[in-house]
């Protein structure tokens, strides 16, 4: 029988190998591309070259940095809204759904059965000039003409992405709430705490690590979003990820796209590190 040390390589090995090949290696490659001098597709087998010119171009173009800032703010807004809206859903599942929690959890996950692209397209139809929302507004007499601002705007990107992320955001919050000892709530009640006091003094602090995990789970991928802005954002809703995508596809300028991606990666990681340092999770959970 294998001991603990003997089983460790079998448990850790496969995921480690997968992460190395499917995550770490591509990141290293993108990092290497970003230091190439050419302005076209990178010939991996061709002669090399080292240059920081791509970073000079990125950091020397105010429009790129401004758009990165806008994208970070949009991602924060989306992550904040998705987490806030997901919180009551998770609370209901953990404390109110009872034996039907599994059923409701399954219902929550049903949207994942539909393609991400289709769900975003559905929003495009709903927000369009002949879409559900404009039709409803016209039907009840609130508008004479379709509202242009619903689709092809930054607001449309935020609304759509919040919708997309709510089920994801609910999961880590739900997991954190499930770990809360019910005896803590009973003890609080015995000591005279009302429902609000129990929530504010016990449930909320103990579930905050899950809420923060949800926030970052939404924030990190949203900074580099490009599909949803492409479909519903119009020229106003363009995000930093669209520019990265453009350099890799329309421009076939892989080194420049790689430098843009590395700058985004560094900024995003820096923000996460700063946030984690500022928020003492252990103190929150005690």
């Amino acid at each position: 029988m294998l001991g603990r040390r003997g089983t460790l390589p079998f448990l850790v090995g496969p995921p480690l190998l997968w992460l190395t090949l499917a995550f770490l290696l591509p990141v290293v490659l993108i990092g290497a591309f970003s230091f190439r001098p050419e302005s076209g597709p990178v010939d991996i087998g061709g002669p090399g070259g080292f240059s920081v010119a791509q970073y000079g171009e990125v950091l020397g173009t105010p429009a790129f940095l401004r758009l990165l800032g806008i994208s970070v703010l949009m991602a924060m807004a989306i992550a904040g809204l998705a987490t806030t809206l997901a919180y009551p859903v998770a609370y209901f599942l953990a404390f109110r759904a009872g034996r039907r929690a599994t059923l409701f959890l399954t219902l929550l996950l049903i949207p994942f059965a539909v393609s991400y692209l289709l769900r975003v397209m559905a929003w495009k139809l709903m927000l369009g000039p002949e879409g559900t929302i404009n039709s409803l507004l016209a039907f009840v007499g609130l508008t004479d003409e379709p509202l242009d601002l619903l689709l092809y705007s930054r607001a449309a990107v935020i609304v759509t992405l919040v919708y997309v992320w709510i089920p994801f955001a609910a999961l880590p919050i739900y997991a954190a709430m499930q770990r809360i000892e019910r005896s803590h709530l009973e003890a609080a009640a015995d000591l005279g705490a009302g429902p609000w006091a129990r929530f504010l003094r016990v449930t909320l602090p103990l579930s905050l690590p899950g809420a923060l995990a949800a926030f970052f789970m939404v924030f990190i991928p949203t900074v580099g979003e490009y599909v949803t802005p492409t479909l519903v954002g119009g020229t106003e809703g363009i995000m930093y990820g669209n520019i990265i995508q453009g350099f890799f596809t329309r421009s076939a300028n892989w080194p420049q796209g790689s430098a843009l991606a590395m700058v985004m990666l560094v900024i995003t990681l820096a923000l996460v590190v700063v946030a984690v340092r500022l928020i003492d999770l252990r103190r929150l959970a005690t």
Partner: peptide
């Protein structure tokens, strides 16, 4: 590259 700057 000019067009990407316009978009950004």
């Amino acid at each position: 590259s000019m067009w990407e700057r316009v978009q950004a």
